[in-house]
């Protein structure tokens, strides 16, 4: 049951993201030198080489960049949440960031690229299993 794929929330380079999610906030690393958002977390800014990042909060809405309906999970540990809808989201406030998330709203049939979605902090396994990890999901 709990072989569900969990993030390593204590890993140093990723901890700020998951700590923020635990308090229902969404943050991304932003280069202190040039202001570029750098996602995924990495040691140096690819734009300017800066090594200092400020984890910067973004608001609760995003745009749907793409989505997939997984009717049958190919990876056994993901079967408890199937069928499910992985999404890729973009943020007006964090240009260049694409967040992989999961749609937990109704009406999958009415999803459209470019539509605005709301970030909902729910358990990663919502609503099927409880992992104890709050994550930014989409509805």
């Amino acid at each position: 049951m709990m072989d569900f794929p969990l993030p390593d929330v204590a890993r140093e380079s990723l901890k700020p993201f998951w700590d923020a999610a635990a308090s229902r906030r969404l943050v991304f690393p932003r280069c202190a030198a040039c202001g570029a958002f750098c996602w995924y977390p990495q040691p140096k800014c690819p734009d300017c080489g800066g090594a200092d990042f400020t984890w910067t909060e973004v608001g609760g809405t995003a745009r749907l960049f793409s989505w997939v309906v997984v009717r049958r999970a190919l990876h056994a540990p993901l079967k408890p949440i199937a069928p499910y809808v992985p999404v890729i989201l973009e943020f007006a406030e964090a240009p260049g960031v694409r967040l992989v998330s999961r749609w937990i709203g109704e009406d999958t049939g009415e999803l459209a690229i470019g539509q605005e979605v709301r970030i909902a902090f729910e358990d990663l396994g919502h609503p099927h299993i409880r992992t104890g990890i709050l994550a930014p999901l989409a509805s």
Partner: peptide, 24 residues
């Protein structure tokens, strides 16, 4: 990064990546 920011959301394996690309 995939293990921490993609797989836990169900964005895995390759058919999921390329279905998202096909949608785009």
């Amino acid at each position: 990064m995939k293990a921490n920011f993609e797989v836990p959301f169900g964005f895995y394996p390759q058919p999921v990546y390329f279905a998202a690309i096909a949608r785009r």
